[in-house]
Design a protein around this nucleic acid. Structure first.
Lengths: 230, 230
DNA sequence: TGCATTTCGAGAGCAGTGCTCTCTATAGTG
DNA sequence: CACTATAGAGAGCACTGCTCTCGAAATGCA
């Protein structure tokens, strides 16, 4: 579809830069990502890559979007495999997918849920991909049967004003309290994954793929139960 | 107490380097921490600071220990203010202290609970300070009255093997299931703080000091309740 | 086809980084 | 007083992001 051969080459090269960026990121992390190294791999001089990418931070932003999308994709396909009526199963499937992806791509995970990169200021382009997983979880919450207890009036007000941004958008008809609990569950999920990926479970949770996976699944099942799922 | 005047100067300078490191870290984050900049502030040439600090990473490690200690200190004093019998109050006090400190020292928080720094490998020296807050929480758990339900045998085994490292150390007599729930609560706490400090609550939770603080406190109170406190 | 215009890549260069090595002045020690 | 350990300076290496200029090549237009 590329019209002129220049445009074709441009597309190709831009893709290669992104690909190499991904590879470097995976190996040595965001701190080790260097435009000059990418230029070397490409057989060109460093100044040339600036024709394709305006700055190192811009490349990092592209990789952030990339990471959000990759995570969103695995979460979505995992969730789609579970019977629609099995709300707890769907929640746990998302959680397991997030954990597995994070452990397989620790640097990418760190990029999106770890410390924000220096100069960064969450560019517009990231908000869409970033909300894929949360959206998935909200969808599950939306399909829960009615109940949910009631909060004391004072507490209810705190919650209502706090989650106003959410209530006015994605999470249309979900009761406030359930949204609040969902948010806490999301925090638990990310907190547990971060603890594991960032190495804070040493001497806390026994090492070993199987043990940790089973324990995480247990934790997530409990969280889901506390949420009123299943 | 410094014997020779050389040793006095050495201590003084080492302290100044650490202090300047802290200052630079607070302003521009770990990525912007530069030994050369510290040398400039000190009025000496860059190679001279290597007489006091073996490498940039070593300085970073010192600052990590520093951060763990600062966080541990504020959590401990906050917790100490609450009546011993008020277990939920103590838990919430710790949580609030962690959040407040993290928001006031985002870069230090990122250093310890965000993405691990490049070449790092949690040096021995950090494990003590790192466990101050968790120890606080475990102490609270240890003072809970007996109850706690029972897990299905299979689940119980998963939990027991997973938390074996903990059971054999700090958390002596605490029932397995409670430890597991405590760990999940710790994940929720850190997850919620990380989401806020790292800017993931934009368009999710309404901005504003008071709103967010109240909402976080509400969340933590719910977590504590789920834990069986209060 | 022929010419003007973009676009691209190379090269040099600036300012900054971590870190090493050598050299000199000085502080501490016998 | 002589000798040694140490501190700081200075130069230098290899690396980074990024800018600017310049020639060659691809493109658009007449």
């Amino acid at each position: 579809m590329a019209r002129t051969r220049r445009e074709a080459a441009r597309e190709e090269l831009t893709a290669q830069i992104l690909e190499l960026g991904r590879a470097h990121l995976a190996v040595e992390g965001a701190a080790g990502l260097s435009l000059r190294a990418i230029a070397r791999d490409l057989g060109m001089v460093s100044s040339a890559v600036y024709r394709y990418v305006p700055s190192r931070d811009a490349l990092l932003t592209l990789l952030i979007v990339d990471a959000y999308d990759a995570l969103g994709a695995v979460a979505e396909t995992a969730e789609a495999r579970v019977a629609r009526a099995d709300l707890m199963g769907r929640f746990v499937a998302v959680a397991m997918a997030v954990r597995t992806w994070a452990l397989e791509h620790p640097h990418e995970y760190a990029l999106i849920y770890g410390s924000p990169v220096p100069g960064y200021a969450a560019p517009e382009a990231t908000i869409g991909p970033a909300s894929r997983v949360p959206t998935l979880l909200l969808t599950i919450l939306a399909q829960m049967p009615e109940p949910a207890a009631g909060l004391a009036p004072a507490e209810a007000k705190v919650v209502r004003t706090a989650i106003a941004p959410l209530a006015s958008s994605a999470a249309g008809g979900i009761p406030d309290e359930r949204i609040a609990r969902g948010l806490a569950s999301w925090a638990t999920l990310l907190g547990a994954v971060s603890l594991e990926v960032f190495g804070h479970l040493t001497n806390v949770v026994a090492p070993g793929q199987r043990t940790r996976r089973a324990f995480f699944e247990h934790q997530m099942r409990e969280v889901a139960a506390g949420l009123g799922l299943g």
